Structures are given as structure tokens and as C-alpha cells.
Simulated scan of single mutants.
Amino acid sequence: MAGTEKSKARTEQTKGKAKEAVGRAVGNERLTAEGRVEQSKGDARQAKEKTKDAFRH
């Protein structure tokens, strides 16, 4: 289960970076903002998983 969550976090971060880059390239502020939000979700999920791992070991 933890591996799945970690991969979801990485996927969200990657998709967010891509959306942000595309948004900047075409001048779409909404798409840029959506990308940042998605990256933040991925960062939060990753932090949660790291915290869980710290308590397991």
C-alpha cells in the first residue's frame, strides 16, 4: 500500500509540473495555478508517507 501511495505522490508532482510548464508556455494562468495545486497535493502525500516510514523504522 505504501508503495502505491508513493507512486501516486510522484505522479501528482510530475503532472503538476507539466501543467504548470504548459500553462506558462501558453500564458494560461489558470492552468499554471492548477499545476501548482497538483504539485502541492503530491508534496503533501509524499510528506505523509515519509512520516509513516519514519515511525515504522
Rank of each mutant, 00 (worst) to 15 (best):
M1F: 10
M1I: 08
M1G: 14
A2K: 11
A2T: 14
G3F: 06
G3D: 14
T4L: 14
T4P: 06
T4I: 12
E5Y: 03
E5D: 13
E5S: 11
E5C: 08
E5T: 12
K6I: 15
K6G: 13
K6H: 11
K6D: 13
K6C: 09
S7N: 13
S7W: 05
S7A: 14
S7K: 10
K8D: 09
A9H: 05
A9I: 11
A9N: 07
R10Y: 09
T11H: 00
T11Y: 00
T11W: 00
T11K: 03
E12L: 05
E12A: 03
Q13T: 10
Q13M: 08
Q13E: 10
Q13K: 04
Q13C: 03
T14K: 01
T14F: 01
K15G: 04
K15L: 10
K15A: 06
G16K: 02
G16M: 01
G16A: 11
G16P: 04
K17V: 06
K17L: 06
K17Y: 03
A18C: 10
A18K: 07
A18N: 11
A18L: 07
A18D: 14
K19G: 04
K19S: 07
K19F: 07
E20V: 13
E20G: 15
E20N: 15
E20S: 15
A21S: 15
V22Q: 12
G23N: 10
G23F: 02
R24M: 12
R24S: 14
R24T: 15
R24Y: 12
A25K: 12
A25D: 15
A25V: 15
A25E: 15
V26T: 15
V26A: 13
G27D: 15
G27F: 08
G27N: 14
G27Y: 10
G27M: 10
N28K: 04
N28H: 10
E29N: 11
R30T: 14
R30H: 12
R30L: 06
L31M: 13
L31C: 07
L31Y: 05
T32N: 05
T32Y: 02
A33W: 05
A33P: 08
E34Q: 07
E34F: 02
E34N: 05
G35V: 03
G35Q: 01
G35K: 00
G35R: 00
G35W: 02
R36Q: 11
R36P: 01
R36I: 08
V37W: 00
V37M: 00
E38K: 01
E38F: 02
E38L: 02
Q39G: 09
Q39A: 11
Q39M: 06
S40I: 06
K41H: 09
D43R: 03
A44G: 09
R45V: 11
R45C: 05
Q46D: 14
Q46V: 04
Q46W: 01
Q46L: 03
A47W: 03
A47C: 09
A47T: 15
A47R: 09
K48L: 09
K48G: 04
K48Q: 12
E49F: 01
E49T: 13
E49N: 08
K50V: 14
K50F: 06
K50L: 07
K50Q: 13
T51D: 07
T51Y: 01
D53M: 07
A54M: 05
A54D: 11
A54P: 05
A54T: 13
F55Q: 12
R56V: 14
R56S: 12
R56K: 12
R56H: 08
H57D: 13
H57Y: 09
H57K: 10
H57F: 09
H57V: 10
